[in-house]
Amino acid sequence: MEDIKIGSSLSFGGYNWRVLDMQNNTALIITEDIIDQRAYHDAYKEITWAECALRKYLNGEFYEKFNATHIFR
């Protein structure tokens, strides 16, 4: 991770990322572009974060785009 600096960009998971901060060999990053625009849930009803469709997507399909080959150490 020595070559990753604050302000630099990197690509993984099919997205371009900008490094915002580095602490303890860990990078805080944000995407360069909007990744996706999704609703909180797929039905208009009272629902918690634990049960919403957005959380299911983030912890499932979105998360799976990043695998061990993309982790920087």
Rank of each mutant, 00 (worst) to 15 (best):
L10I: 07
I47H: 06
L28H: 02
I6M: 02
I30L: 11
Q23V: 05
E46T: 12
F12N: 02
D42P: 07
D33Y: 15
E64I: 01
L20W: 01
I35L: 13
I4K: 05
E64Y: 02
N24A: 05
N67V: 10
F66H: 13
L54A: 07
I71V: 14
V19Y: 00
L54E: 04
S11C: 10
A39M: 12
W17K: 04
A50G: 06
Y57K: 08
C52D: 10
A53H: 11
I29R: 04
L58S: 06
D3F: 01
E2K: 10
I4L: 14
L28W: 00
I30G: 10
I4F: 12
E51Y: 07
D21E: 15
E61K: 11
Y63G: 01
E51W: 02
I6A: 08
N24F: 01
H70I: 09
L54F: 15
A43M: 12
D33F: 14
T48W: 02
D33N: 15
F62A: 06
D42C: 14
A43T: 15
C52G: 11
L20A: 03
E61T: 11
Y63R: 14
R38V: 08
N16G: 06
I4W: 06
A39Y: 13
A39L: 14
F66G: 14
W49D: 11
A50Q: 11
E64Q: 14
W17I: 02
D42E: 14
W49P: 09
K65G: 05
I4N: 05
L28E: 01
K45L: 14
Q37H: 08
K56Y: 12
K65D: 12
F66N: 14
W49M: 06
E61N: 05
